[in-house]
């Protein structure tokens, strides 16, 4: 059990090519954010990751420098096939979308400023907001068994929501500060549970 790198996940990608194609598909569906698509494909459909592992990689990628979804792709690729996997996931996440934006830019089309595109994007933006919120709700189940307990988890979820959405605390401070608090509280609980045995 301790040696398994993927506790809780049922399957793994077959090859770096499999990773590349999967992340290409994710990136191309990711209008207004790739995260909701990634959760559905990687956790629910392909089952390469458990809910808990997905939250873990997401949280870590928020703390590390670099674009979050790109960092997630890197960490996941590395987890399965080391350097080759990281490179394959990165190429998948960036390759096709880069080609698309370069072709649009080369055509001198002010694509994003066309009225019809702006209308469509507004509708997609509303759906993207719902997708992200729905993904968060799905992932709440992954908190079961968390040493912070139901009350502790609920308090941290709410505090983060208020800090980032209402008080507009810069992300590194919010994640560093509240994440640090969560870390300290969980560490105390785990240590106390260890002494109790």
């Amino acid at each position: 059990m301790a040696a398994s790198p993927r506790t809780g996940a049922a399957f793994a990608p077959r090859s770096p090519l499999d990773l590349f194609l999967t992340f290409t598909a994710l990136a191309l569906q990711g209008f207004g954010g790739v995260l909701a698509i990634a959760q559905r494909e990687l956790v629910e459909r392909k089952r390469w990751l458990s809910r808990e592992e997905f939250i873990e990689v997401y949280a870590l990628s928020q703390l590390l420098p670099g674009p979050n979804i790109v960092t997630m792709a890197l960490l996941l690729g590395d987890r399965f096939f080391g350097w080759r996997g990281a490179a394959a996931a990165l190429a998948g996440m960036l390759g096709a979308p880069l080609a698309i934006v370069l072709v649009l830019a080369a055509g001198y089309v002010r694509f994003a400023e066309l009225p019809a595109v702006a209308d469509a994007l507004r509708g997609m933006g509303a759906v993207a907001a719902g997708l992200i919120a729905g993904t968060a709700i799905k992932l709440i189940g992954g908190l079961r068994g968390n040493p912070l307990g139901v009350a502790g988890c609920a308090a941290l979820v709410l505090a983060t929501l208020v800090a980032v959405a209402i008080l507009r605390v810069p992300l590194p401070w919010a994640v560093g500060g509240l994440g640090g608090l969560g870390w300290w509280l969980a560490w105390r609980r785990l240590r106390r549970a260890g002494e109790g045995q």
Partner: peptide, 25 residues
């Protein structure tokens, strides 16, 4: 402890992202 402590923060962050995307509309 790091993973456990950060998980609720990550979920709060996702909810906040949804809110911030929806707000201008």
């Amino acid at each position: 402890a790091f993973t456990a402590g950060l998980a609720p923060v990550a979920i709060g962050l996702l909810l906040a992202t949804g809110w911030l995307i929806a707000r201008p509309y």
